[in-house]
Nucleic acid binder design. Structure first.
Lengths: 137, 137
DNA sequence: AGTAATACGCATTGTAAATACCAAATCAGG
DNA sequence: CCTGATTTGGTATTTACAATGCGTATTACT
């Protein structure tokens, strides 16, 4: 069971931003701090902004910051958004599914239920529970 | 959020075997029926046997069959075994982890809890709930 | 013996994530 | 109204690893 690094990075971004609210973070800033690819991180930030979790501002002095208070951002929702295009198993992607059991399969619904349980369990926490406080401040 | 096809195939094998107990299935039989790779499936069967879920017998007339009654095989346990080497996120694989937040991260424990919730939810069902009945018998 | 099957290691392939690159759009500040 | 900094979006490339293939050894039934 795996989440993509895309999702992983998204969570790191949110936790870090919650640690220093009111600061606008550029993609370059965060990429340097996390020591990961700047370009890839830029896309993660785009996705978070598209989901309404971040507000971004372009141009000089621009950057991104949280669009809502950390306590109003539920972790499960974040994961669900960032993993939206990931099929848990092959048959969840109906267009490329080749499983011969599909017509009579009684497992699929149970897997979907478990996936929902995963998200629901995460939703018991909000970003406020996972604030990352930078080293020295 | 994704499970490997390795796990997917493992579940298919178990469901199919539960549909026709007392029959020994060879890897070739199942691969043909599912229209998937015979070699890959053989490894899945090995893993299931190593986990004590299947009994295998070599030689002519050999094959594999369930080691326990379907109602005594919990789905969450199966998934947990087959996904054992899959790290949910990078920091779960401590030897290759490069996340700079790790020392003060308050997210990891929550992710682990959610993963356990996923397995626990699946464990509400057993293989007996997911028997696959072949087309015409 | 001969045959049918698993078991296992290693090589190869294929695919998708991760990353890099580039051009365009946008904005702050002088 | 420039100019430099930044996001945005698209495409291309790289890379990692799951998936597959294959050969050999091993085991066991007939």
């Amino acid at each position: 069971m795996r989440l993509t690094s895309f999702t992983d990075y998204g969570l790191r971004v949110l936790m870090r931003m919650a640690g220093t609210p009111d600061r606008a973070f550029t993609a370059a800033d965060l990429a340097a701090e996390f020591r990961i690819s700047r370009n890839h991180l830029a896309k993660v930030i785009s996705a978070l902004a598209a989901a309404g979790l971040l507000e971004t501002r372009r141009g000089g002095g621009g950057g991104a910051m949280l669009a809502r208070a950390p306590k109003d951002i539920r972790l499960g929702d974040v994961v669900a958004v960032l993993e939206a295009d990931q099929a848990l198993v092959e048959c969840f992607a109906s267009d490329t599914n080749t499983c011969t059991l599909t017509p009579h399969c009684r497992l699929k619904a149970r897997l979907a239920h478990a996936e929902a349980a995963f998200v629901a369990d995460l939703n018991r926490s909000t970003l406020a529970d996972c604030v990352y406080r930078p080293e020295s401040t």
